[in-house]
């Protein structure tokens, strides 16, 4: 029972951040902030959801000798989450990089200081 509640908390918070990422993609003004929302939200929420699944697997765990396949499943799920930690921010970075090379202009509020032109030959 308590394991179900903990895993439900993890999964629901993951879904909350997924919703935040989706709202961010829809409502942010330019390419960079949208990619930022997608990358951050996706990474954290996937981690939370997968951790919730891993905790839920512990439900039937009684003795190590009989239930070791459950630990194997948990190990696989945590490996997936570690893989996501490595790859998801990198793919977001690659996307942003490609956008910068395509001369995608960021939207900057008027009067705000920006240093984009200083060390780049593109703007």
């Amino acid at each position: 029972m308590i394991i179900s509640i903990i895993s439900a908390i993890f999964i629901i918070s993951g879904l909350f951040f997924f919703a935040g990422a989706a709202i961010g993609i829809l409502r942010f003004p330019d390419f960079y902030t949208r990619t930022h929302a997608a990358g951050k939200g996706d990474t954290l929420s996937s981690l939370l959801v997968i951790t919730g699944f891993a905790i839920y697997q512990l439900k039937g765990f009684e003795s190590f000798a009989a239930d070791w396949p459950i630990l194997l499943v948990i190990f696989k799920l945590l490996s997936v989450s570690i893989f996501i930690i490595f790859t998801s921010p990198t793919s977001t970075h690659a996307l942003m990089d490609a956008g910068w090379e395509e001369h995608n202009e960021p939207k900057i509020m008027e009067g705000r200081p920006n240093h984009l032109g200083e060390d780049s030959d593109q703007f």
Binding site: F83, F86, T87, T90, H93, D97, E101
Partner: peptide, 22 residues
């Protein structure tokens, strides 16, 4: 040409070096 120098390839290159063996 999609390789504009190496300065912004460090992050991607390092991650891929970790990910490819996995």
């Amino acid at each position: 040409s999609f390789t504009h120098g190496d300065h912004n390839r460090i992050i991607i290159g390092t991650t891929c070096r970790i990910v490819v063996p996995i």
